[in-house]
């Protein structure tokens, strides 16, 4: 295809991505280096019978004028990144120097909002992703071995948790887990503790969020693996059987290697999607027990006073996180495609 034609064909897409994905990244980086102007203070001298005293007050008009003239605020360099709400370098250094044990240091870290969010995000990503793949694989194997007639309806019901709006799907689960809902009541009965409540316990909340995560994305892994199973070479399977391979060995040495490229694909997509975990925490109203990086940004943006530069700094850190997380896969994709 000629360069000129190619350019005009991709122009609309390229323009959209440039304006609304590439530019916002620049805008986020810029915003994170500035902070909002402080309020303008004026000193007023009040004189009365007993002498004069000066009071300082906020000059609302001047503040508004200044903020409107320079909406980006004043230059702050890396200050926002290093403050307590983000990387908290001084707090971390202090926690390190006053530590009694390594555990003590980590619990000190966990009290800092950014590290708290990072801890949950990473735990969620690295627990949910493998579990999704395992569950998806088992469903695929099970569906593949049932009779043909039930496969269609099975796929239909299996797709529901994946297709459903994440906010809505997690709400549905959350209502059932409520102490007055069916699952909540069931848990109380199982634990024989009428005061047990998922809402009140941090570990239970983490588990509930992760169960939601697996429930939501297992269908995706299932469908991909199921399609892969359809193309397993039947001749290889049968010759393996003739050679004396038992059921497990056939799965281990014939089916697994065939599905391996699909596993990397599912893992890539799942890492991207789990790292941005957001909606379930909103629906579960779990901010007190678990925050993620996305939630940190959302709370900064949504408050009465929009903390734009704080949100921007967290965004930049999140983007760096995504880059680190995906760099091995990106390098691989680059090499694979570089070949042709």
């Amino acid at each position: 295809m000629k360069h000129g034609t190619f350019f005009w064909f991709v122009f609309p897409s390229a323009l959209l991505m440039l304006l609304f994905i590439a530019m916002p990244i620049v805008s986020v980086v810029l915003q994170s280096l500035y902070v909002q102007h402080e309020q303008v203070l004026i000193e007023v001298e009040n004189c009365s019978l007993f002498g004069c005293e000066t009071t300082t007050s906020v000059d609302q008009e001047a503040t508004r004028a200044l903020r409107e003239a320079e909406p980006l605020g004043r230059w702050a360099g890396l200050d926002v990144y290093l403050n307590r709400a983000h990387l908290a370098t001084s707090e971390v250094a202090e926690a390190w120097s006053t530590r009694e044990s390594l555990g003590d240091f980590f619990s000190g870290l966990y009290n800092l909002p950014f590290y708290r969010a990072l801890a949950f995000t990473l735990t969620y990503t690295f627990i949910v992703t493998p579990l999704t793949i395992i569950l998806g694989f088992f469903i695929a194997v099970a569906v593949n071995s049932t009779i043909k007639a039930v496969r269609g309806p099975t796929i239909f019901f299996s797709l529901l948790p994946f297709v459903i709006t994440p906010l809505v799907g997690s709400l549905v689960l959350f209502w059932m887990l409520d102490a007055r809902g069916i699952l909540g009541a069931g848990l109380q009965w199982l634990a024989d503790n009428p005061d047990l409540s998922v809402k009140a316990s941090t570990p239970l909340m983490w588990i509930a969020l992760m169960i939601y995560g697996v429930w939501h994305s297992a269908p995706f892994a299932f469908v991909v693996f199921y399609a892969g199973l359809q193309t397993v070479n039947q001749d290889t399977l049968e010759s393996a059987m003739i050679d004396g391979a038992n059921r497990w060995e056939r799965i281990r040495y014939v089916v697994f290697p065939h599905l391996l490229p699909l596993v990397t694909f599912v893992a890539l997509i799942q890492l991207m999607d789990n790292f941005r975990v957001f909606e379930p925490i909103v629906s579960f109203a779990a901010q007190a027990h678990a925050t993620s990086l996305s939630i940190a940004i959302f709370t900064d943006l949504g408050g009465e006073t929009r903390l734009l530069s704080s949100a921007a700094a967290t965004s930049v850190l999140t983007i760096i996180g995504v880059a680190i997380l995906l760099s091995p896969v990106m390098v691989r994709t680059y090499r694979d495609f570089g070949k042709d």
């Binding site: 991505m17 609304f20 994905i21 590439a22 530019m23 916002p24 990244i25 620049v26 805008s27 986020v28 915003q31 909406p71 980006l72 991207m272 790292f275 941005r276 957001f278 990086l293 996305s294 940004i297 959302f298 900064d300 943006l301 929009r306 734009l308 949100a311 921007a312 967290t314 965004s315 930049v316 999140t318 983007i319 995504v322 995906l326 990106m330 994709t333 680059y334 495609f337």
Partner: peptide, 21 residues
């Protein structure tokens, strides 16, 4: 396509904080 893949990995909420101002 490679850049599109990188853009696909951006959490939308990080972009939103770039849009607001």
């Amino acid at each position: 396509l490679f850049f599109a893949l990188i853009f696909r990995a951006m959490p939308p909420i990080t972009l939103v904080s770039g849009y607001l101002l």
